[in-house]
């Protein structure tokens, strides 16, 4: 019965692994939730900061994150989708296209701080947009681009070839087939990819460090050329700068909770959608 003893020990270890994983990750959420909830109030969500970031709320910070995320999506979704459509539908199958596919996959794994440097060199300095919402959005957009391209490509490839043929055989042109058959069928998959990348972009800090973020900015951003406060950067800045570490820490807890909630909520929608698609396709 030695065989079964080994099995029991082995299975116990595996069980311990998942319990440990869930425990540690749960701990993070627990701490941030219980401490963060103490500071969150209506005022915290709707007021600008006061008294050198030690009192008041974080409304402009939340708004800043929304602007940056929105800007990134406005830029990345059409471009990424167009790129995926071109690669799946229009491009001839060749070695060049394959290389392009592989490099897109690879770019999805490039460290986000590298994207930040690119944004700094190109948008902030070369194009002279300065440290601004525009620079930050474009940088985040480029970070999201490979994610959106590969998710859209996956969704487009999953559309059966037979219904494209059916559409063409009825006298629909290629574009009509794409617009009326391929895109609607691939839409849930594309949407999932886009939502996941929203979650990712909203939580990214490194790309906006030198392209968009400011620790303190009075009031709400006025144009796309103004610097902006953003939740992830704000958490970092509260913990490393400023003069009232304790009060700032409390605010950082609040910001972390808001960010965590935001990102988990967005990603939750995407994962729910994906789960539903999986079970739909059997």
């Amino acid at each position: 019965m030695k065989k079964n003893i080994t099995q029991n020990i082995g299975f116990f270890l595996l069980f311990a692994c998942i319990i440990a994983t869930l425990f540690f990750l749960g701990t993070i959420i627990y701490f941030i939730f219980t401490r963060g909830i103490q500071i969150i109030s209506w005022e915290f969500l709707t007021q600008p900061p006061r008294n050198a970031m030690t009192e008041g709320g974080v409304a402009p910070v939340i708004v800043g994150t929304l602007y940056l995320t929105l800007g990134a999506m406005v830029f990345a979704v059409p471009l990424g989708l167009a790129c995926a459509i071109y690669l799946c539908e229009y491009s001839p199958k060749s070695i060049v296209v394959n290389i392009i596919r592989i490099s897109i996959n690879n770019l999805a794994g490039v460290p986000s701080v590298v994207f930040g440097l690119f944004g700094l060199a190109v948008f902030v300095n070369f194009l002279n947009f300065g440290v601004s919402i525009l620079s930050g959005s474009l940088t985040l957009g480029i970070l999201a681009l490979p994610l959106i391209i590969s998710a859209s490509q996956e969704a487009l490839v999953a559309v059966p070839h037979s219904i494209r043929e059916a559409s063409l055989s009825l006298g629909a042109s290629k574009w009509e087939t794409i617009k009326r058959i391929v895109l609607p069928t691939a839409l849930p998959g594309i949407l999932t990819g886009v939502i996941l990348s929203i979650g990712r972009v909203a939580g990214e800090t490194a790309p906006i460090l030198f392209t968009a973020a400011a620790f303190y900015k009075r009031g709400y951003p006025k144009s796309i050329f103004s610097e902006v406060m953003a939740l992830p950067y704000h958490i970092y800045a509260l913990m490393t700068e400023g003069t009232h570490p304790d009060k700032q820490k409390a605010i950082a807890y609040g910001c972390s909770l808001i960010l965590l909630f935001l990102v988990l909520f967005i990603s939750g929608i995407a994962i729910y959608l994906r789960q539903r698609q999986r079970s739909y396709h059997g």
Binding site: P160, S162, I163, A166, S167, L170, A172, S173, I181
Partner: peptide
Amino acid sequence: MVFQKPNPFPKSIFDNIAYGLRV
């Protein structure tokens, strides 16, 4: 053309038929 495997569009029955007219 009618294909080997039935390949209706993932749309309603009505829209499947109307598709050719619309395009």
